[in-house]
Every structure is written in C-alpha cells, then in structure tokens.
C-alpha cells in the first residue's frame, strides 16, 4: 500500500479530481473544499422517518430470531416434555413474528411480505435486540434468556393491546395469551434450576451474569418510540421497566438468585449493530430461500 490508488482504478467521471497531488488523502478525490465535503459527508440515518415500520421490525425480529434459536433445541432437549414445550414456544414466537412482519410490510408499502422481510434482509437491516441472537448455551441459559424476554414481552403486549393501532392491538391481544404461558414455563424453570442442585444453581447464576448486559436494551427509548407514540402506540418505557424489575426480582428471589449489579451494558441491535452471532444465524435461516430467488415453496 505504498502507492495511492491512481489512474487505472479511478472512476472515469471523477473529472474534478484531476489536480489531486499524489499521496494526498490516500488518493481520495479532493477538489475545492465543497466538493471534498460533498464526496465524503454521508447522511445520518433517521429511523424515525418510517417509525411504525421500524417499530414493527423491532417487535417482529425479536420474535423471529428468538423463535429460531429455540427451534434449534428441537429433538435435543433434556427431557421429552421439554422438546414439546420449547417447540411450542418457538412456534408461537415465529407465528407472532410472521404477523408482525406481514404488518410491517403493509405499513412500508413496498410490496414486501413477511418472507421477503425475513429472508431477504441482511443482518445490519435486522432490528432485534442482542439478547435473542445469542447462541443457546445450556438449557439454563436458554430458559433464563427466555424468561427475561418473556417477562418484557408480556408487559409490552399488555400495553400494546390497548393501543390505538387496531392491527397491532389485535396481534397483541392474541399474543398475550400465548406469552402468559411462556412466562409461566420459563419462570418455573428459572426457579427450579436456581433452587435445584448446587450445579444447577451455579450454572444458572453464571448465565444470569452473562445475560444481564443485554437487559437494558429492552428498555431503550429512541426517536422511533416517540414517533410511534404520536401514532397512538404509546408505551411508558419507564413504567414498563419498573414492572419488569418487580417481576424479575420476584422470580430471581424464588430461584435464590440475586439481581446482578455493576454490569456494563451492551446494545445496538435496534440500529442494526449486532453481535457476530446474528450473521451465522441468518446464513442458516436464509440459505434455501436465497439460493432460489423467486421460487415458491
């Protein structure tokens, strides 16, 4: 890389870059100040430009990615009854995701259905939170993640069911019933494993420390939330957080686990800044659909 890229690779229409001195700015076009800025200064992405679409993607992607993760347990659970239960929850989550993404496609108005959104978006276009894309770990990690998510989900659905967006409220009303069962299932496992044997306690306590850094992201509020509030989808994030804290603390206490403190938080999923795990998950999920563009299944 001693020589800057020059003529052979230069774009033929970069006429105003003719007076670039060798070496300056690594060969980047640099005419007068205005041109230089125009060529490099990008736009700040404003997700709130289509806030409802963004909001629905967040809801849908959370459930699609978590449902996908849960479905990886199918046939590999610790006991047959759990193969049935986890498959059941996975099924509900993918079902919710399909409805949410379908609605997102309608809101967007670009003729993308739920499958186009699920199978033909890149990782950076996914809007799920980081927690749900983490690899499954052991059964305790999976159940604890599930509980932290389910608790949030139930409280959120309860709010959205009363919202002013009829289609979303309808999805929420149905999802509440499913999610009640999910919370019961996952919270019972957290309690069993936390207050089970020495080994199970140690494992689930470790998972709690691992997972806690992803919890704040569930309650992050940005311009999208404010913008959808103007459309009647009003979520009191602080109130949600406080109800979630109570619920989680109650279950963790019964599981003889302590709410972690002093953990540095991670986030970024809502803006497409994911962990490296999502890309692999999507590579698997999308491989068949993308290998046969335009095919019907």
């Amino acid at each position: 890389m001693s020589e800057p890229t020059s003529a052979p690779n230069a774009r033929p229409d970069a006429g105003d870059a003719g007076d670039v001195e060798d070496g300056e700015a690594g060969g980047i076009a640099a005419g007068d100040a205005t041109t230089r800025e125009r060529s490099v200064a990008g736009v700040r992405r404003k997700p709130e430009q289509d806030p409802l679409f963004e909001y629905l993607l967040r809801l849908g992607d959370d459930r699609l990615v978590l449902g996908h993760r849960l479905s990886e347990w199918c046939g590999h659970g610790p006991i047959l009854e759990e193969d049935i239960a986890t498959a059941n929850v996975a099924l509900d989550l993918v079902g919710q995701a399909a409805q949410l993404l379908k609605l997102a496609g309608v809101v967007e108005g670009k003729d993308r259905d739920e499958d186009a959104l699920a199978y033909f978006r890149e990782g950076v276009e996914y809007r799920n939170c980081l927690m749900v894309e983490q690899p499954n770990g052991d059964f305790g990690y999976t159940m604890l993640r599930q509980f932290l998510f389910d608790a949030h989900s139930l409280l959120l659905w309860e709010v959205l069911a009363t919202g002013q967006h009829p289609a979303l409220a309808a999805i929420a009303a149905k999802a509440i019933k499913e999610t009640r069962y999910h919370v019961r299932h996952s919270s019972e496992w957290v309690i069993r494993l936390g207050d089970g044997t020495g080994e199970s306690h140690a494992r689930v306590a470790r998972s709690l420390l691992e997972l806690w850094r992803f919890t704040d992201e569930l309650f992050e509020r940005d311009a999208v939330d404010d913008a959808v509030a103007k459309l009647g989808v009003v979520v009191d994030t602080a109130g949600l957080r406080s109800r979630w804290d109570t619920m989680v603390e109650d279950v963790l206490t019964r599981a003889t686990l302590a709410v972690p403190t002093g953990i540095a938080m991670q986030s970024g999923g809502r803006r497409g800044r994911h962990t490296e795990h999502l890309g692999h998950l999507l590579a698997t999920m999308q491989i068949v659909a993308r290998s046969h563009p335009g095919a019907r299944w």
Binding site: L64, S71, G75, A87, L91, V94, A98, D115, Y119, V288
Partner: peptide, 22 residues
Amino acid sequence: ITRAPTLRRKMSLIAKVQDEAG
C-alpha cells in the same frame, strides 16, 4: 427447521416435529 424457506413452512415443520415428540 432452521433452514425452512418460508415462515409458514418453518412453523409447519416445528409443529410436525413437536407432534412426533407428543
């Protein structure tokens, strides 16, 4: 299951495997 090409197919396959466990 993880590679089913549409969400509908993914759901049917999960449901089928779940039935088998049942």
